[in-house]
Design a protein around this nucleic acid. Structure first.
Lengths: 346, 346
DNA sequence: GGTGTTTTGAGGTACGCAACTCATTTTGAG
DNA sequence: CTCAAAATGAGTTGCGTACCTCAAAACACC
């Protein structure tokens, strides 16, 4: 009836006795320190295995004394999504303090590879872990690898650098996000013909490119009657997004769907309403004060969201687990693609 | 440029010096032990506030010695959702062991108030925390309150008992879930007239009743052209759900939408396909092996999901935070209503 | 057998806090 | 002013690990 999921209550001392060695030797084995004969190592390892011994995380943490420092390298300038991440880190202040974790924000121009790389290099040695919103570029990749080689734990946040040796990526699968957007636009349009517009920040950004790729995939295979117009680039700015979209709306009277890949949402919404085209199915990204209002007003039909709070917390937890040498709860740290409509606004 | 979010590195000793008292007195204040003058209490509290001092969680955990025990009271019998929760707890085994947390599963008949109440009473005194999938019934409420009075931390899981004094509810807002289902059915149907069917387990179950309420709310206000048929009760069983739905489909040729509130999904799907009505928009709950397949096949159009892994982990984290007297990260522990379609299947 | 090197044992300290005891000081009532 | 009660100080122990030193033992090599 009552089934226990955990067992351990042993200490290092028990392992030492079990393996017939002293505490010091067990300690050497546990931390891969030299000076233990291979045969002895094996005996100790076996004793650990046999009881599936786990060091008491509280004791380990206390014993090491030294506090840990993490750095979050984020875009400078006003970006609502990043501000939310920062805000959530602020909310964790108590949690962090109780664990003697120091988290520092480092603002930099993440869109300039050399500047970003320099910022990363500057962190070397001072931090136990670094979370970075990274551009995928050779010099950035090299900077990340240098950090890793120096023993710093590195996670990429929101935007990945898969070719680097970063330990983990905390963010969504952007191709799947684009596919989801495509499925939503297609389904919500609910008719078999018409045109669909895409507004992106830049096709040079990895995440935007991936989203567009996924979007087109679904449109082509599942909604062949809908024709996708060439991608507009709004540089994630409101005014520019508004201009390019307004022109497009003027040229095509039969636009029935719109996918806004990045930011600049305010401008997109304005172009739509100024043109009197509120009936166009409008799917965008992220739940912010603005998109929340647009959803409630019915201007936006759905938002694809990656929970910034979850990303912030996941990044911290992953860095901490990496630093402690603990396994990562992959399922927990996976960032899900949320579909947010008016009625499930968080 | 680099902005620090945390400060603390103080110890109890520093607070004692700061307040001009001894360690013993600080300890008395921290743990609300008697024998300290109100004025002294104030001085110590102020010193703690001033530096926003937080006890080192690792040191505190280590010092208390005793391991913590939590019990999960779950429905007996095969229930995929509950099995998933149990599985996720299993995945946390290492995490739990490293923190010397014992988690035990207690299977019981949660649908029988007296049996459930008795199971809860039996736990009294043995556990630091209890998570329970609870029926909302006076005797269950009383049992929960008794546990709380005995100092045990109690969280309700999946299904709440709001009238009890449980410390926390880990689960979704079921009215909002129903509203979300309504919005999806309405939008995906994409036409202004037709009938919509509802299959529920029982209208006596709190969560089902709430979902139906939310669903009807949205249908009435936003999709007046769609008429909702009387609720079918399938007792969460496949065969019964299939029978009642098959009969209804025979009676109404103009059913365009279907909301399956609880389990019995297999039967619902079978009734639909046997009747050759695959075009009906079908929205249900939870991502299981079955619903995943149905979504991929296009039989189901969307699933409203509450992440069971998140619920399991949140319950453990909340119980631990409660037991330690730590604040709860509400944003983190809030269970979101996920909309899952084919392209964002987790 | 002697020498030098590697491996191991033994032991200690520190980490920050909880929980406790016991002695001492302060306070307030009579 | 006295005495008991209340308040406070001082100190101890233990939690399980990390990290360090020093000495002893085992070993390899000539």
């Amino acid at each position: 009836m009552a089934e226990t999921l955990t067992t351990t209550a042993l200490t290092l001392k028990d392992i030492a006795r079990e393996a017939g060695v002293s505490l010091a030797t067990v300690d050497r084995v546990m931390h891969n320190r030299p000076g233990v004969r291979p045969d002895t190592v094996r005996r100790v390892r076996e004793a650990i295995e046999r009881h599936s011994f786990q060091p008491h995380v509280a004791a380990a943490e206390l014993a090491r004394g030294r506090a840990r420092r993490f750095a979050f390298v984020m875009p400078s300038g006003p970006n609502p999504f990043m501000q939310q991440i920062e805000a959530y880190l602020g909310e964790m202040a108590g949690w962090l303090a109780a664990r003697r974790l120091g988290v520092e924000m480092v603002a930099t121009d993440v869109f300039d590879p050399s500047v970003l790389a320099a910022s990363l290099e500057a962190l070397s040695g001072d931090y136990d872990g670094v979370a970075v919103v990274a551009l995928d570029h050779p010099s950035v990749r090299a900077a990340i690898n240098d950090l890793v080689d120096a023993g710093t734990k590195v996670v990429t946040l929101v935007s990945d650098v898969p070719s680097s040796r970063r330990h983990h990526y905390v963010g969504i699968d952007n191709i799947a996000a684009g596919r989801t957007a495509g499925a939503l636009v297609g389904r919500l349009v609910g008719q078999s013909s018409g045109k669909v517009a895409i507004v992106a920040g830049s096709q040079g950004l990895r995440d935007h490119a991936e989203r567009i790729f996924g979007f087109n995939q679904v449109m082509a295979s599942e909604f062949p009657g809908l024709s996708v117009l060439p991608v507009l680039e709004g540089r994630d700015q409101d005014d520019r997004s508004e201009q390019v979209l307004a022109r497009l709306l003027g040229e095509h009277a039969d636009i029935v769907g719109l996918y806004n890949v990045g930011a600049g949402t305010q401008g997109v919404a304005k172009a739509l309403s100024d043109a009197g085209r509120d009936e166009v199915v409008f799917v965008g990204h992220d739940v912010t004060v603005l998109t929340r209002r647009l959803l409630l007003q019915g201007v936006m039909d759905a938002a694809i969201s990656q929970n910034p709070g979850h990303e912030a917390r996941a990044a911290v937890r992953v860095l901490l687990a990496l630093a402690r040498g603990e396994p990562i709860l992959r399922e927990q740290e996976k960032i899900r693609i949320d579909i947010v409509m008016r009625d499930n606004l968080p």
